[in-house]
Design a protein around this nucleic acid. Structure first.
Lengths: 201, 201, 201, 201
DNA sequence: CATGAATGAGTCTTCATTCAT
DNA sequence: TATGAATGAAGACTCATTCAT
């Protein structure tokens, strides 16, 4: 009974914190306001979370792990699938986990990506872009295409990587419903996959 | 003592302010730190700029006007050029002014787009995205293509509009040299122009 | 350590605040000095009262309500009593509540009247003067006396209204003891009642 | 030429200062705003007046002297005129100089009386009240009237003294024209002279 | 005479955090 | 577990005044 109450309260705090963090970002979020919205005293808040940072990580770490795992899975997947089947399998093997992430965790995904200034995640967006970029360039390095080899050193892949991520964030920001997410993630990925395929005559 | 000329000192302040604003954003920028970095007392700072807001606008207003003019010019240009020649003229009429903006004012451009929360520019990025999106959809509405008509109402154009802008921001963020800017802006615009042309069989 | 009870400390703050407000007026009162005089840190002061204004109103609102009620009661009373008995009943029905106000709340009465510049009470003194003036002129309008009718439009009633209020403030300022208050309020009111009766030959 | 310019500028400063002091009082008046309203730099203001206090006294000292002289004259006058002719001569010997003061110097008179907190005049209003009170009581001490002797120790004379002064201030505050001043000062003084005469059966 | 530059002390207020109860 | 009390540091900004030019 008491245990359950505690758990509920903790969740209430986390809900209030998520709202505040998303509204103001980590740096401008106020512990006082979080406590108020969770209907507890500010000092009691510190019985549940020992600092603003810990509270932030308590909220975001789970989704951070999910994203991280997803990225690693994609990397592994990509290595396993050969070049020929790439375009066909993209949808199933890559797009689906991303859709799932957005459908289930879009708020925290956005928070990590956009509201984490002042935390250890503040550069994570850029890191992800670089990882994605690496996928692009590595993939093109496997091609025997001169033009592609040149392109591989080009900043355009960095931009496209950011575009892909930014597109996913934009979908998360304007979430309508699950079906809408599926449609737009697919459209976005198809756009970039097709777009990049033009680099091969 | 050593009376530093007013103009030099004012520029020193603006330099320190630009650095601080870019690092922390308008809201989290500290007048105290700006003063410290400009090596003057906080109260003296207020002899040069009467408030944090005025200081911010003093730095950004010029570039804001440039961007605004550029956007209006592009809109007018687009109306004047016919559909057929559109793709060919994109480079000269649209890409060039953008390159110039980035080459000359990338820092302030980024500041207006990314660090302006709390100022009158805080929604400007979104406004620009919507303007660009409108260009895309209007353009496609002039086509007699059923598939396109359907797409015109789709969120994908919103994403692509944001991608275009975000790509320009990314180029600004990672500025290498002027030639590099020219190359990448052109590549980015070509990518999206070609990419969208696929929507017409 | 020695944990002083909340109520005692709050009262200590209010005492310090009342002193400071009376000495300097709302506008020039310093939260820092109030905190110092209450022997707490300035920031702790804000745990008890969320702003200078709130602190001021916490001190004055009660007495403001008392004054307001008193004024309304007097207005009602005056309408009920007829003209002939007016002068005789003044003492009991009007003077007594005023004496009570001064005996119990002279400091806050003075603060509202004299030290409230910058608060919502800053015009209250003038409002009261006008209310009193209206009582005077209305009363004289009920008389069938030509000379009086002329006087009713005269500024002298405004002065006398202010004099009455100012007399009460002076009694409050120089408070000696309760009996002294009774004596002087009565003398003051008698003086003005008799004085004004001379306007009727 | 230069001399004339200087004089004009000094007068312009004093005009701006009077406005600011009357609006905000000495303590809250801003040297910066005075300089702005006088259209000179703040630092140049200090070439004309070496401090806020000196500026205040430069404006008020003249009128302070006038008031002081007036009070001394009245005291002398009162001693010279006998008891019997007192009431008749009040108008000519006492009221007239007061009217003149209000007609010529009402603003500075009000400033000294009401806006001088923080200066050496901050208690002058109370001092004047006490002087006037003394006149009243001394006058009544010359009477051979038992009841009066008792009254002489009473606070009512203090109140009436303040009422008289406050009435003059109220006339100054609401100044309409010179004739209006004459009428109301006379009415006010008559009211109190008559009123006090009632203390002698 | 005129002024821009400079400053230290002050204004109210918010902050994340700690601690005794 | 819960909370009122406490604080030092920091936030933007204003102030009267001084000084070099």
């Amino acid at each position: 009974m008491v245990q359950i109450l505690k758990k509920e309260r903790k969740e209430k705090i986390e809900r209030a914190a998520l709202d505040e963090f998303m509204l103001k970002g980590f740096l401008n979020a106020s512990m006082r306001k979080i406590a108020q919205n969770a209907q507890i005293s500010t000092s009691n808040l510190y019985n549940y979370f020992e600092s603003k940072e810990k509270l932030f990580y308590s909220i975001t770490d789970g989704v951070y792990t999910i994203i991280n795992t997803l990225v690693k899975d994609l990397t592994r997947t990509e290595r396993e699938i050969g070049r020929e089947i790439f375009f066909e399998q993209v949808s199933n093997l890559i797009a689906k986990p991303i859709m799932k992430l957005i459908k289930n965790h879009r708020e925290k995904f956005l928070l990590i990506m956009e509201g984490s200034q002042g935390t250890k995640y503040e550069n994570y967006q850029e890191e992800l872009v670089i990882i994605i970029e690496k996928h692009f360039t590595e993939h093109f390095h496997t091609m025997e295409n001169i033009e592609t080899q040149d392109l591989a050193d080009t900043f355009i892949f960095h931009i496209l990587a950011r575009n892909l991520l930014e597109g996913l964030l934009e979908i998360s920001r304007h979430y309508v419903n699950d079906k809408w997410v599926d449609f737009n993630v697919e459209a976005l990925m198809k756009y970039h996959v097709d777009g990049m395929s033009q680099f091969f005559k």
